[in-house]
Write a protein that binds this DNA or RNA. Structure first.
Length: 158
DNA sequence: GCCAACGTTGGC
DNA sequence: GCCAACGTTGGC
């Protein structure tokens, strides 16, 4: 089993939107970066991912989801009316992938980006590296545990 | 709204 | 294959 971090803008689709979906499950669409796409392809059912709110005030980790369906062609790439439409993608050889995610936990308090940066043990976290723009990132088990502990603390660390 | 960082595109 | 131009991400 592997650990991940997946970014979404809460103004577009946040963790509370996921909570309101049937079975608290939704496809994760719109990934248009090859490296992030390759991470999606390697996900297995049962993998866990932090749900990160980007372009938010404040940005941070809002909760945990599990991968409930492995990668399949992202339908929005073929939808002319979707902002994610890609005219160069071919149905016989789809360029972009989705997975399904199912809600596991909404953290009582968002773990803010500031709080993450304040943890010396997370100094090497890819998420915190300058200029990182990948919307799907792998997480080392050690980092996963540290952040999980932060989530379970009674007081926020921002 | 600004802008640094970075990926992609396309001319050559 | 190089690299300038351009578009996007995402924190601030």
């Amino acid at each position: 089993m592997a650990y991940w971090l997946m970014k979404s803008e809460p103004d577009v689709f946040g963790i509370n939107d996921l909570a309101q979906r049937p079975l608290q499950t939704e496809l994760w669409d719109g990934v248009r970066n090859y490296q992030a796409r390759n991470y999606l392809k390697s996900m297995q059912v049962g993998d866990l991912a932090f749900f990160y709110h980007s372009n938010a005030k404040p940005p941070g980790i809002a909760g945990i989801v599990t991968i409930s369906r492995t990668a399949y062609p992202d339908p929005t790439q073929f939808d002319k009316h979707s902002p994610y439409f890609d005219e160069r993608s071919n149905p016989t050889d789809p360029r972009w992938m989705s997975v399904d995610v199912t809600l596991v936990t909404i953290f009582e308090h968002l773990i803010s980006l500031d709080a993450l940066r304040a943890q010396p043990a997370l100094a090497d976290l890819p998420l915190l590296r300058r200029g990182n723009r990948l919307s799907v990132l792998p997480m080392a088990p050690s980092a996963w545990e540290i952040i999980n502990r932060m989530a379970n603390m009674p007081v926020s660390h921002a």
